[in-house]
Amino acid sequence: MEVLQLLVSGLANGCVYGLIALGFVLIYKATEAVNFAQGDFMMLGAFVALGLTNAQYLDLPFWIAAPLTISIMAVFGYLLDLFVLRHLFGQSQTAVVILTIAMGFVLRFIAGLIWGHEPQTLESPLALGDLQFGGVVLGMADVAVIVVTFLLTWSLYQFFQKTKLGLAMQAASQNQMAAYFMGIPVKRVQGLIWGLSGATAAVAGILFASKGAIDPNAGLLGIKAFAAAVIGGFGSLPGALAGGLIVGVIEPFAARYFAAGYSQIAPYALLLAVLVFRPHGLFSQVRVKKV
C-alpha cells in the first residue's frame, strides 16, 4: 500500500515536471532553441493566476481567472518572441540559452517585486478534498494534474502530427531556409510557438499552485523538468511526459529507500546516466541523415 501511495504522489509531481518539460519540448521542436526560463514562465503563470483569483488581490472567480491567466501568458510568450527573441534570429543556440537564463533572473526579480517573497497559496477549487481508493489517498489537485497533463500532451501531440500549423512548426525547425521557400512564415510560426509554450506554462503554474505554496524561486523546479525533457529525449512530446513521470516517481522512492544525502541526487544521477548511455534520450529522434 505504501508503495502505491508513493507511486501516486510521484505521478502527480511527475505530471507537473512533465508539463514544464512540454514547454521546453514545444519550443525545441519548433525553433531548436531551449528556453531555460520555462520554469520561471510556470512561476509567472502561477502568480498571475494567484493575483487574479486570491481575495487579497483581484478576487475573480477561479473559472474566469484560469482561462484569463492562460491567455495572458500566451500573449506574454508571443510578445517576448516579438520584442526579444526575434532579434536573435540566426544567432547561435548558446546565445538563446544565455538569454533565457538571464530572462529567468529578471522574471524572478519582477515577480518578487510584485508579489513578494513569502510563499503563497492559490485559492483554487481544485485544492479542496481528498479521494480515497482502498487505502490510497489522492488529493483532488493531484487527480486534476494527472488528467489535465495527459489531455494536454495528447492534444499537443495530435496538433504537431495532424494540423498544418504543427507541421509548419516542425518544418521551420528542420531547415529554416527551406521552410521560407515553402512559404511558411517562419518568424510568425516561432512567435506562435512561444505563445503556445507560455500557455502550457500557465496551465502548469495553475496546477502547481493548486497543489501547494509558491514563491518566486519556484521556477527553479525547471531544472528538474530539464532532467525530464532530456530523459524523454528533447523533441518528443510523449517523451517529455514519460521523462517527467520517471523523475517524479524516482524522487519519493529515493527519499524513502535511500540514505539521506543520496536521495536528492537520484534525478540528476539518472539524467547524467541517460546522457552518457543514450545521449539523445529514451525516445530519441536523432537519425543519421542519408545522402
Binding site: 531551449v34 539524467l271 547524467l272 546522457l275 552518457v276
Partner: peptide, 24 residues
C-alpha cells in the same frame, strides 16, 4: 562522456554536474 553531447545537451549535463557537486 560529455563529449558525445552537443550544444544544449552539454549545457544540461554540466548543470547537473553543478547541482551534484553541492551534494557530493
Amino acid at each position: 562522456p560529455a563529449l558525445r553531447l552537443h550544444g544544449i545537451y552539454l549545457a544540461i549535463a554540466t548543470i547537473a554536474l553543478s547541482i551534484l557537486a553541492d551534494d557530493i
